[in-house]
């Protein structure tokens, strides 16, 4: 589709942040932050409110320029890659924003069709069928296809957002608090959905989350964003045993015990 030299690309680490510094005015959010997203894994990022998780997500996605350091895409500095490589990356990335970020003037089906229209040349009826299929995959009823985002509940909006993120069958999925605002049943179903999609599509998933159940159920590795950098990024057992007051509080709290993590400490 595009003239991309695949041999040059490093698929084992699709996205990598090296020595990132982010600041707003004199307020430094990230300082020397390093993080690798490895192919095929589900990486969960945790951190307190205001620790800059969403800023990190935006930086990795290229929505925000880092004030220092480098974001690598397939092993190459984002600033130096060619237009066609960037486009290649874009068609392989799906993003689910916190509120779903659906286009409010389009109905759900049209929302899912937007990336297809932009990046493929499929006939419209086929696009419609594919959009309906995505809708079914994320567990929305067919009647939702013609509804507008304002008619949907928060959970349905999230699912529709995920369907749009999956529109181009991406290899890498970025999820910003996917289970926030969902009821426990819905959240569990969402976790299962994500695992199933990973299995089926071979997805690499980067997930910002506060939901300990989700971390426990889905993530291969957990990165802790604290003190302006990633303190540790490792399997959950190791992260839980990591010696840091915030981590101890986070995983030692009553909610964590409820999620079955407390015993590990």
């Amino acid at each position: 589709m595009h003239s991309v030299d695949y041999g040059k690309l490093d698929f084992s680490v699709p996205v990598e942040a090296i020595g990132i510094r982010s600041q707003f005015g004199s307020n430094v959010i990230h300082e020397n932050l390093n993080l690798q997203l490895r192919s095929g894994e589900i990486l969960g990022v945790v951190g307190g409110s205001g620790s800059g998780k969403s800023v990190l997500l935006n930086t990795l996605l290229g929505l925000k320029r880092p004030d220092g350091g480098v974001v690598n895409i397939f092993g190459h500095d984002r600033k130096n890659i060619t237009e066609s490589e960037l486009k290649y990356f874009e068609t392989r990335v799906g993003v689910l924003f916190q509120g779903g970020a659906l286009f409010s003037s389009l109905n759900v089906r049209e929302n899912i069709m937007v990336p297809m229209r932009l990046h493929t040349n499929l006939p419209v009826p086929l696009m419609r069928e594919l959009a309906d299929m995505k809708l079914n995959m994320v567990g929305l009823p067919m009647t939702a296809a013609r509804l507008y985002p304002s008619d949907l509940s928060g959970g349905m909006r999230k699912r529709a957002g995920l369907a749009r993120a999956l529109a181009l069958d991406p290899r890498i999925l970025f999820l910003d608090e996917p289970t926030a605002g969902l009821d426990p049943v819905g959240a569990t179903a969402f976790d299962e959905l994500i695992l199933e999609l990973r299995e089926a599509l071979g997805l690499t998933i980067f997930m910002v989350t506060h939901d300990l159940d989700t971390l426990f159920a889905t993530c291969d590795r957990v990165a802790v964003l604290v003190d302006k950098h990633i303190a540790i990024a490792d399997t959950l057992d190791k992260v839980v045993r990591y010696d840091h007051p915030w981590v101890a509080e986070y995983f030692g709290g009553p909610r964590s015990r409820a999620a079955g993590l407390g015993d590990a400490r």
Binding site: M133, N136, M137, E196, A200, G202
Partner: peptide, 19 residues
């Protein structure tokens, strides 16, 4: 492989659910 099986089931289910 298992992933492809899941994928095909999901697709079949989706086509069946499409009214």
């Amino acid at each position: 492989n298992p992933g492809q099986k899941i994928l095909l089931s999901a697709a079949a289910e989706a086509s069946a659910g499409m009214a």
